[in-house]
Amino acid sequence: MMHRRMLLGGLAAAPLLGATTARAQAFPSRDLLGVIQWGAGGATDVTGRAVTPHVEAALGQKIVLQNRTGGTGAIGLTYVHGLPSDGYTLLYGAENPLLYKVLNISRLDYTDFTPICLLARSVPVIVANKDKPWNSLKELVEDMRRNPGRIRMASTGPGGQAHVVSTMLASTGPFRHISIPFDGEGPGLTALQGGHADWMTVGSGAVAEHVRAGRVKALAVFNDAPLPSLPNVPPATADYPELARLMPWGSFYGVWAKKDIPAEAREKLVAAFRTGTANPQFTQLMTGNGNVVMNTSGAEAEAFLARWQSVTAWILQEAGAARTDPATLNIPRPS
């Protein structure tokens, strides 16, 4: 492996001396660059790094991965946006850019990008500290209504999973709680186990093991059916059927390229990622972690993104958490 890398690198230096015939060669004729908009060890990173070797096999070229983090992913997206649209640069991203304009984080989002492949999505799980009295989602929500401003939720910042899910829960009838932002799901779960927060919403992949070990109490999965990896946890729709209109909802991880890349490059990339994502090793890894493999591209992926954005932006707008009105951004109301 090491050897191959060196060799490729060595080859990469050679054509400096003169080969400009590469234009005529079929895509892809050399290494690709994959920019991951989240940090090493995070869900976007792990998902991307797990699928890439299978994609490389299908593509016949190496994808050099690098993390460009910061600004809830805006840095990586802006960087890829500034590079030529030749199909040699990919953006490994998550759901966050769909909310950049609503939350005034960046003027650039996925508008100028095309989804090559949506890899997988996670299902939010609502968990509580194990010493808390609640045994169902309803008990938690009702307790928050009885004791406004007393119960502490660990969040991952505005637009994050915990923030959006709590806003969605509040659409069933308002409640007021304290929301403490942590640096991510991991630190939030740590605080939850230490009793410094009472409840939170975490992606199924990050929390399944903690639930299984009994370190935290799972109240509900934010889905309309139970998850195979957490069969005993009821869906949120059991207590609040009206939430079904918002589902499926949760973080997702995918790969994007600039919209105006050559058609040939796009087709090859889509095909390679479709093959790579279908690899049993990858699908087993994802489902084993409680994620749902998506493997969608093209119009289907565009439709998923549009619906996700519409549902989320408007729920934030109704809760007063949006900084720019989605109507002015031409984001349609969810039907």
Binding site: G41, D45, A50, G186, E209, A213, Q284, G288
Partner: peptide, 18 residues
Amino acid sequence: AVIIGALFIHGLKPGPML
């Protein structure tokens, strides 16, 4: 954090049960 990611990729389940 990266090692936890590695364990995931190798099919292990980092967590309290590990």
